[in-house]
Amino acid sequence: MNIFRFVGDMSHLASFFLLLAKLIYTKSSTGVSLKTQALYLTVFVCRYLDLLVAFVSWYNELMKIFFIAASAYIVYVVATSTRNSNASDTYRVEFLVIPALVLACFVNETHWSKGGWSLNVMEILWAFSIYLEAVAVLPQLKMLHQLEDTTNITMHYMASLGIYRAFYLLNWVYRLYYEGYWHPIAVVAGIVQTLLYADFFILYYQSVLLRLPS
């Protein structure tokens, strides 16, 4: 594992702790999009089905289990929050889920000549998870643009997700150059996903960094 991948993963891990800290310590899920969190849970469950068939490393296994468990817990907390004022969580997620699923059926890494039926279904779900992750942040972005009182911790959560994506791009450049590792589906979707965060970082700069006491 190279340093870019590791920093990306740690930033991704930090994003979970930031969101959990916000939910637990402020006892409020205001400003957190349930839709985005439910999409992330879907992403992790679909992508990490390979937990059942392929062992890569203990690092990978534990991270995958943590991502599924933490996002399930976050979805539970946000969904059951009584002081939830998420009337602005209005993104039409079917416009994200259905195209991602259709695209995954046609553009994926299946090899029907090799492997069994179940492995190929896993490949379609893997591609679906990649496409869905690329756009899963959109409901959260829409909320951030609509809400005035967005807490800094939610913004830091988003920033750590953006850093995770940026470092994964660097990781792929590194791996392509030194290892010849190349998953075009993941890379193209990853570039789209990272570009979506560019919009967020402008907001982050204006609303958080410019407000920091000097």
């Binding site: 991948r5 991704h12 392929a54 990978n60 890494e109 490949e123 993941a186």
Partner: peptide, 10 residues
């Protein structure tokens, strides 16, 4: 080897 084996990222 199975294709899933080559996916070692998160």
């Amino acid at each position: 080897s199975a294709k899933a084996d080559s996916k070692d990222e998160l």
